[in-house]
């Protein structure tokens, strides 16, 4: 974990309200897919860092790619970053995806909803580099017009299935509808997206006894496990907290779906 001033190498707009940067940062050296960083714009009115998931990692180049949706002040300020700008970063944070469980699994489903897609790109790259075959990626978007950001990049590593809320591209409905219509039952699921989608995936996976790993988010203040702001209810007593609460920033953000009450 490091805390430093990162520098923007490259900035991109991927769709309306969706921005990305490549940041030069020492945090890249130890980062894993599924981890996140805290970014702080240095505002005196908006003091807390913004937790942003790591989309992709360039270890040789010492840089991290981050992609976010503008949701408020902090992400709005970040969308105005330009090449050469500095931004305070703490990271990498959290546990990241456990890729070892993919060993030997056939039919892996990677499911992303909206701004849940970015952290899955690094995961799919890592699965691909680890030799995993039969990875199917299911990506849900609002509509084709609102932008199918990152979908093309996923295609480099896996088969991509699109679902849109309005049916303008791919399956009309959710990523779970797309998974069902494919007819292929996965042996392992990785997912990131809005809470209703994650609840649906948890239920789908539990009914079929499929291991599913989901990435959670919650409002957080510190990102390093100190403030206890970002907990999720767990099915078992958590070792750190000694109660049925785990810190999303530290024990997560990736949890086995069966272990959390969402």
């Amino acid at each position: 974990m490091i805390s430093e001033k990162a520098v923007v190498i490259e900035k991109e707009q991927l769709a309306e309200g969706i921005y990305g940067v490549w940041l030069k940062t020492a945090a890249a050296a130890e980062a894993r897919p599924g981890q996140f960083v805290m970014l702080n714009t240095g505002s005196e009115a908006h003091l807390l860092g913004r937790p942003i998931s790591i989309c992709d990692i360039d270890r040789e180049g010492g840089s991290l790619r981050l992609v976010w949706r503008v949701a408020g002040y902090g992400t709005g300020e970040m969308s105005r970053l330009e090449s050469g700008d500095g931004i305070d970063i703490i990271g990498p944070l959290g546990n990241g995806f456990d890729i070892s469980v993919a060993k030997g699994a056939e039919n892996i489903a990677v499911m992303g909803g909206g701004i849940g897609a970015p952290p899955l790109l690094g995961l799919v790259r890592a699965l691909h580099e680890g030799g995993a075959e039969n990875v199917d990626v299911y990506l849900g978007y609002r509509s084709a017009a609102a932008g199918l950001f990152l979908a093309g990049e996923f295609k480099e590593f896996a088969a991509v299935h699109i679902a849109t809320d309005d049916g303008s591209e791919g399956t009309h409905g959710t990523v779970i509808d797309a998974l069902r219509s494919g007819g292929k039952q996965p042996e392992l699921i990785y997912a990131c997206g809005p809470m209703p989608m994650l609840k649906g995936i948890k239920q789908y996976a539990e009914e079929r006894l499929i291991p599913a790993y989901i990435s959670l988010e919650e409002r957080m203040a510190c990102g390093v496990g100190a403030c206890l702001g970002c907990v999720v209810k767990t099915r078992f007593k958590d070792g750190h907290s000694q109660v049925e609460n785990a810190r999303i920033c530290t024990e997560g953000p990736i949890f086995a779906a069966k272990d959390v009450d969402i």
Partner: peptide
Amino acid sequence: PWEGNPTPRVAETSS
């Protein structure tokens, strides 16, 4: 051990 409150537990405000 105490469980604490439900989430959301934190919110940013001006300064």
